[in-house]
Design a protein around this nucleic acid. Structure first.
Length: 883
DNA sequence: GGAGCTCTTGTTTTT
DNA sequence: CAAGAGCTCC
């Protein structure tokens, strides 16, 4: 096929489309959406309608430019984002077209591409490759420690796995890692050795890890020009979301596909780059204008999400960054309430404050689902969970331990993996370990035997069965099976295990054989049933495991309900789809609550990226927790700062930043200083309270801002406030007054690291698998059909208070919307007296009073049938009319 | 091979 | 503190 990359002349949008877009988008958004061919950089501040712009742009390319949808490739980082984008594009173009657009995550898309291409790349892989997750990786790696005679106590396998991951992010091969330039100390030498072995083990198992998904695809594109041409030709329009989070491999992947035609749109915000630890490099977005010199840059600087107060606070944190793209967010939203800064006593007080405050918010008409509690580390969720359960507040945790990471689930899935990928030795071991009587010794012997005789593990096992089925059962000589068991496929050779082990292996083989047959004849749910029954999995869990056997069995039952959703296709195809999902999909993606569930959401700050909530609590605002001690040690404060920026900008109306003086972990009490991020908040924006909600007096606020928890040893606080100003180094290693650009003082105590802990999760995967818009539903405007312009839902009365507009005001053509375009906030519904309404928490009720609230807010009083009279804001309360 | 015990150790974020 | 590794004993 001839490939030419002449830019299609970009026709001026037809007037009606342009007119319609003008009602939906502000001018810079419109510029981005209607940009023609060639590279486009969209710098999209928090809450500036980024996803909306991508969705509209895809729709625009299809509808207006008449590009076939299958020529469009849209890449995201998370499944959540991919799903949201699919959802929005579907609303704009209809299902038929949207389905043809190739949308997905980097990893998901690469997995998909590799299924059809990987055999070109190396004969060591085939299309049935298994995707190993972190747990699988670690198992394989630990085995390499043993085989290489390395002591896992001297070098931590986790650290080595991290190092290998980072090498892969930078496209460093095992051979390169072993070279002098990479390995210049004992650790790196060990890493190089283990990396080589690890990679060999993966290849032998026909398995790839997350890094391989990207890197193998890249190799394919870079080493096979015809393949690259094929992809570049097919995907004539490439869009990449969260571009600030790409690593080198991903960057080169994008370039390999879009480098020729250059129809590349990247969207991102360098202030929200929070994945440096995963190899992401902000540099790529900062350099986009050099990489693609002819690119057009559009800045989306109008924030539709947050109050001015919240935005200004976020910018105060952002201001401490050492480098960033020039970009100034502004909002036409109201000033809003002050931020609440909370000084609690300990982590229980912290949790109790949050809960009391949630109670209060709910009384004012906020629904549980409009509230999020965010924390730096998953371990912090535990106290919150305990208290929430105690107070019977409905909540969901997003993330934490993945459902598919549970041991019993991994064990069942290991069996399933074996049916698809007979080379998967790790799955063989894992499934084998659940079989009564089969121990490591026999399994090791078997795996070694299979490797020596060049048999995939499953084939080797089945061959035992075949040999047994011949006329001559295996006689034993000196406890070993007779060496020359003959069958059509050849001689098995000496089998180095005893009769008892042999019987156990045969039973394993019979089970797998039956399952392989089942793969052809049964539905996927039935196949799983057969698996559980034949292997006696329930008995194994109940007898064999800890006291939680019942609970574990319940989890397996959950797995059955998940699998049912893949039952439409045949077991074989359904199984492949299911396994791919199990490897690539996190709980954050599957366990998303449907819009019906009125629950408070708990998650990490990282997980919260891309979401928004009317009320947000960020807890653990302490040095060592947030910013995290490890980041402090490594001098990575910028990334923590960006994470804080992300957290703050999740909030639409109410923001609480909560920290505590002391916290117990590992059985000890530790005291951290207040987070620098707390202290950097502009004082006039914050209402400071203690854990009981009582206002802090001025002296205590000042103490707080100087780096000490107020009220904690009054003398201590008074001590360095005696002089009236906070210059000089305070005693006790407390931090000096706010100066975002200053590194921590040399004398600062080493912050104590947070402890780890297992976060338990509520709800199973089936609890909420229905597609949903997530908890952010409230703030996302309805997207109307392209061809059916709807009246613009002007948000009533969002007057620009107090002249807080930013520099963008002065920049011609940027960020200034004459008519505020459809802001991402729902129009406040109006209600009439005596109207019947429904609230997700309070039930049904009757409107008995309507009165003006703050600003343009309208407050109504509703007499609920069961809970009495409540005063609610029509803009915020999730009310629906009952006909 | 496996149960039950003590000891060590490791602590971020996720595709 | 809790999970995992390592040890002993059956």
């Amino acid at each position: 096929m001839e490939r030419t990359y002449e830019p299609t002349p970009s026709p001026a949008p037809s007037p009606d489309i342009r007119q319609f877009l003008a009602t939906q988008l502000n001018p810079p958004q419109m510029d981005a959406v209607s940009h023609g061919d060639g590279p486009l950089l969209i710098l999209a501040g928090a809450g500036s309608g980024k996803t909306r712009v991508i969705a509209y742009r895809i729709a625009y390319i299809i509808r207006e430019r008449q590009i076939p949808p299958w020529q469009i490739l849209a890449v995201t980082f998370t499944n959540k984002a991919a799903r949201e984008l699919t959802h929005r594009v579907t609303e704009l173009t209809g299902e038929d077209q949207a389905r043809q657009v190739r949308m997905g995550t980097f990893h998901g898309l690469c997995a998909r591409f590799l299924r059809s291409e990987i055999e070109l790349l190396s004969r060591r892989y085939d299309r049935n490759f298994t995707i190993y997750d972190t747990d699988d990786q670690l198992r394989v790696l630990k085995r390499q420690f043993a085989e290489a005679g390395l002591n896992p106590k001297l070098v931590s396998p986790n650290a080595v796995l991290g190092a290998i991951g980072r090498l892969k992010d930078r496209l460093v091969s095992p051979a390169q890692a072993a070279s002098a330039s990479e390995a210049h100390n004992p650790f790196e030498t060990a890493v190089a050795t283990l990396y080589r072995r690890y990679q060999d083990a993966l290849e032998a198992a026909n398995a790839v890890d997350f890094g391989d998904l990207i890197n193998l695809m890249l190799q394919l594109l870079e080493n096979f020009p015809d393949v690259r041409q094929r992809y570049a030709n097919r995907y004539r329009h490439v869009l990449v979301d969260e571009y600030q989070d790409v690593n080198e491999a991903q960057y080169r992947l994008v370039k390999a596909i879009a480098g020729d035609h250059r129809n590349l749109t990247v969207v991102g915000d360098d202030s929200q780059a929070i994945y440096g630890w995963r190899g992401a490099d902000v540099r790529y977005i900062l350099q986009f204008e050099q990489d693609f010199a002819e690119c057009t840059t559009v800045r989306l600087e109008q924030n539709y999400r947050s109050t001015q107060t919240i935005l200004v606070a976020a910018q105060a944190i952002e201001a401490g960054l050492t480098k960033r793209h020039a970009k100034e967010l502004w909002t036409a939203n109201r000033k809003g309430d002050p931020i609440t800064g909370v000084v609690a006593g300990n982590e229980t007080d912290e949790a109790q404050f949050v809960i009391r405050e949630i109670d209060r918010l709910v009384v004012t008409g906020i629904a549980y689902r409009q509230i999020a509690i965010l924390y730096r580390t998953n371990a912090q969720s535990r106290v919150l969970e305990e208290q929430l359960v105690r107070r019977r507040l409905p909540f969901q945790m997003v993330g934490g331990t993945r459902f598919y990471d549970r041991r019993e689930i991994k064990e069942v899935i290991a069996y399933l993996h074996l049916l698809v990928n007979p080379y998967d030795a790790d799955a063989f071991r894992r499934a084998g370990a659940t079989r009564k009587g089969l121990g490591d010794t026999t399994i090791d012997k078997f795996v070694a035997w299979a490797a020596e005789t060049s048999r995939p593990v499953v084939d080797g096992l089945i061959s035992l069965l075949r040999a047994e089925a011949t006329e001559r059962p295996a006689p034993l000589i000196n406890g070993a099976v007779e060496p020359d068991l003959d069958e059509r496929s050849g001689v098995l050779g000496p089998l180095p295990w005893n009769r008892r082990a042999h019987e156990l292996l045969l039973a394993y083989a019979r089970d797998l054989d039956a399952l392989i047959t089942g793969l052809r004849t049964l539905s996927l749910p039935d196949l799983l049933d057969l698996l559980l029954k034949r292997t006696g999995f329930r008995e194994y869990l109940l007898e064999h495991r800890d006291d939680n056997g019942e609970e574990r069995w319940d989890n397996v039952q959950e797995l059955k309900s998940v699998v049912t959703e893949y039952g439409a296709s045949g077991a074989d195809e359904g199984l492949r789809l299911f396994l791919e999902n199990a490897a690539l999909v996190s709980d954050a993606d599957t366990i998303r609550a449907g819009p019906r569930d009125d629950v408070v959401t708990l998650m990490t700050l990282h997980t919260a990226k891309g979401l928004e909530f009317p009320a947000v609590f960020i807890v653990g605002m302490e040095e060592g927790i947030f910013p995290h001690s490890r980041a402090l040690e490594e001098g990575n404060i910028d990334e923590e700062r960006r994470l804080c920026y992300v957290g703050i900008t999740r909030a639409m109306q109410s923001l609480y930043l909560v920290g505590c003086r002391s916290r117990s972990f590992r059985g000890m009490f530790v005291e951290n200083d207040p987070s620098r991020f707390l202290r950097e908040l502009p004082g006039e924006l914050v209402r400071w309270v203690d854990g009981n909600g009582f206002r802090l007096d001025a002296a205590r606020v000042m103490a707080m801002q100087s780096g000490a928890w107020p009220g904690h040893g009054a003398s201590r606080a008074a001590g360095y406030w005696g002089g009236g100003t906070a210059t000089g180094s305070p005693p006790n290693g407390s931090l000096p007054p706010v100066d975002p650009n200053r590194p921590p003082p040399p004398g600062a105590p080493t912050p104590i690291r947070p402890w780890s802990g297992q976060a338990t999760r509520v709800g199973g995967p089936s609890a909420s698998r229905q597609p949903s818009s997530g908890p952010s539903g409230l703030g996302i405007p309805n997207i109307r059909e392209f061809n059916g312009p709807a009246p613009t839902p002007l948000r009533p009365g969002l007057e620009n208070i107090s002249g807080l507009r930013r520099a963008s005001d002065l920049t011609p053509g940027i960020g200034r919307a004459q008519t505020p375009p459809a802001p991402p906030a729902p129009p406040s519904p109006t209600y009439g007296l005596d109207e019947r309404v429904r609230h997700p928490s309070f039930g049904d009720g009757t409107v008995i009073e309507i009165e003006p609230g703050r600003g343009t807010e309208v407050m109504i009083q509703v007499k609920f049938d069961t809970v009495g009279v409540k005063k609610l804001s029509t803009g915020l309360a999730p009310l629906t009319r009952i006909p």
